[in-house]
């Protein structure tokens, strides 16, 4: 099998340095590092992988070459399947799909088939209504749904079972609405949910904050709740779910993991490197560009976090009516 390296322009300069250094000893890593983005270029996973690559290289945290490979397909399945057959020099980006794919029956893989290395960043979920909507807070919305679930059209996309969908399911459940009765209109395309909201074709949407933040600032839509623990800068007028009496804190996280059976030395290496990465200014800048919040957890914390998340998602998938 031929390994093919994607040559990022920035990598060229570093290639020379790393060659000098690679003779030093037997310590991990001894080969170039490959970061798998289990999606096409341009999406969230791809951006995460390329941000990792860029920050690790620009700050000279890792001496070996780093390449990003795109292995799209099956909601991460193709790339993760590939990772499970590699050695410790390959990493892959992940998100909650790692957990939900299995619960939704689209994958045999679970997080236990890999070595969690870190949770990196998160976006927050939001609920938004049209600017001229008479609904002003999430409690009003939920009450309306409770009175007549079919009367409130909720836009979501691109597929049921994602965080946009399940975060709203959790909120509805906490409010005492049967999530199976929610009237979701599922929009397949990337921005279709937002179009539907701006055009008044739905009564509310549940989506990641970044999708609607600028529209909110421009006064085109009204965000009525965010899933973060506290209010966020830039949009301090938007209350959290918790403030409004609905105990929901819902991160839409991204992280990075390695193949199964990594040694303690290898895990420690990445804990150190990624720990340093999240402290860099460049990383902070990238987070800001993407509207992500830092959500760093080291390998041990991430393993624990995955266990908690699996339990949460099991319940949500079941309650949403998508359970197998």
């Amino acid at each position: 099998m031929k390994k093919i390296w994607l040559l990022a322009a920035s990598a060229l300069a570093l290639a020379a340095c790393s060659e000098e250094a690679s003779g030093e000893g037997e310590t991990f890593p001894t080969e170039p590092i490959e970061i798998v983005a289990p999606a096409s270029p341009g999406g969230g996973w791809d951006l995460t992988a390329r941000s990792l690559q860029k920050v690790l290289e620009d700050n000279e945290l890792v001496e070996e070459d780093i390449t990003v490979t795109n292995k799209p397909g099956g909601g991460g399945e193709v790339g993760w399947q590939y990772l499970s057959e590699q050695d410790a020099h390959t990493l892959a980006v992940n998100s909650s799909l790692l957990i939900t794919n299995n619960l939704l029956g689209t994958s045999e893989l679970t997080y236990e088939d890999f070595t969690p290395l870190a949770t990196l960043a998160t976006e927050w979920q939001s609920v938004a209504v049209p600017a001229d909507s008479e609904i002003d807070d999430v409690e009003e919305l939920m009450q309306k749904i409770k009175d007549d679930p079919s009367a409130v059209k909720i836009g979501v996309g691109p597929a049921l079972g994602n965080d946009d969908h399940l975060s709203f399911v959790q909120a509805a459940r906490e409010f005492g609405v049967d999530p199976k009765k929610l009237n979701f209109l599922v929009y397949e395309g990337g921005g279709d949910v937002l179009t539907a909201l701006l055009g008044g074709h739905v009564d509310a949407v549940t989506t990641s904050l970044s999708e609607v933040k600028d529209q909110h600032l421009a006064g085109d839509v009204k965000i009525i709740a965010i899933s973060s623990p506290e209010r966020l800068p830039d949009i301090e007028d938007v209350p959290t779910y918790v403030e409004q009496g609905i105990p929901v804190e819902f991160p839409h996280w991204r992280g990075v993991m390695g193949p199964p059976d990594m040694t303690e030395e290898e895990i420690a290496y990445w804990d150190e490197k990624i720990g340093a990465l999240v402290e860099t200014e460049q990383w902070a800048k990238l987070l800001e560009n993407n509207d992500w919040d830092s959500f760093y957890k080291d390998s041990a914390e991430t393993a624990e976090f995955f266990a908690e998340q699996t339990e949460l998602y099991e319940g949500l998938v079941e309650d949403s009516g998508l359970g197998q």
Partner: peptide
Amino acid sequence: MGIPGSGTTAVMLGALIMLG
């Protein structure tokens, strides 16, 4: 509106976000 109307514009959106 920040709405990608096609596969290509969706990729462009991703790249632009990266650039801030």
